[in-house]
């Protein structure tokens, strides 16, 4: 910051100006204005986030597993997303355990896809990890899911076996309340 007196001719009169003081005022004003601008912009950004009503509607849901027969897939909705609850057959469980998962696109062992002691229950978010379409049940050579949009293939545990999807169907947070009831969320 330059200090010392220089001459200003702005108003047509000549007067002494303390340039250091003036620089300080400019910087202080600009800094204060910048803080104010950020504070003013913040609510405009913040209002874009989910509102309280939406958040309240996203509370955990309970799902009764009793009506789902072996081999069936039930679709429930949680946070506006389809949740696939799949009652795996013994054959699907055995095949899933024996498959070589190390070479898969998104390597995951059978234990990572289901809860301990509940081998026959798969709970995944039914949204293709490629670009968000809902895969079709029991389509494709692996017997899991096939995405209608770009042909990604999943096995019965929701593991992606053929691209373009980069990751397995996501497992939502859920817990077994009893052998026939889960809470998602």
């Amino acid at each position: 910051m330059a200090t010392g007196a220089v001459t200003a001719q702005g108003a047509g009169t000549q007067e002494s100006v303390d340039q250091g003081k003036r620089d300080f005022l400019y910087i202080a004003t600009a800094a204060f204005g910048a803080v104010g601008a950020v504070a003013a912009i913040a609510p405009f950004i913040n209002q874009l986030a989910p509102d309280e009503e939406t958040i309240a509607a996203g509370a955990p849901i309970e799902v009764d597993l009793a009506p789902i027969a072996e081999g069936q897939i039930m679709h429930v909705v949680w946070r506006s997303k389809p949740i696939f609850v799949r009652h795996l057959t013994q054959k699907e469980v055995e095949e899933s355990k024996s498959a070589d998962w190390h070479e898969m696109i998104d390597p995951a062992p059978e234990q990572a896809r289901v809860k301990d002691g509940h081998d026959q229950w798969l709970v995944v978010i039914g949204i293709c990890t490629h670009l968000g379409c809902i895969p079709l049940d029991k389509e494709g050579p692996y017997g899991g899911w096939k995405c209608p949009c770009h042909g990604s293939l999943y096995d019965p545990l929701g593991r992606v076996r053929h691209g373009p999807a980069p990751a397995n169907l996501a497992v939502p947070p859920y817990a077994f309340l009893s052998d026939t009831k889960i809470r998602v969320g």
């Binding site: 913040a42 609510p43 913040n46 209002q47 986030a49 509102d51 309280e52 939406t54």
Partner: peptide, 10 residues
Amino acid sequence: MRDVNGGWLL
């Protein structure tokens, strides 16, 4: 007024 983030302010 009640639910939207900062909605009352806007």
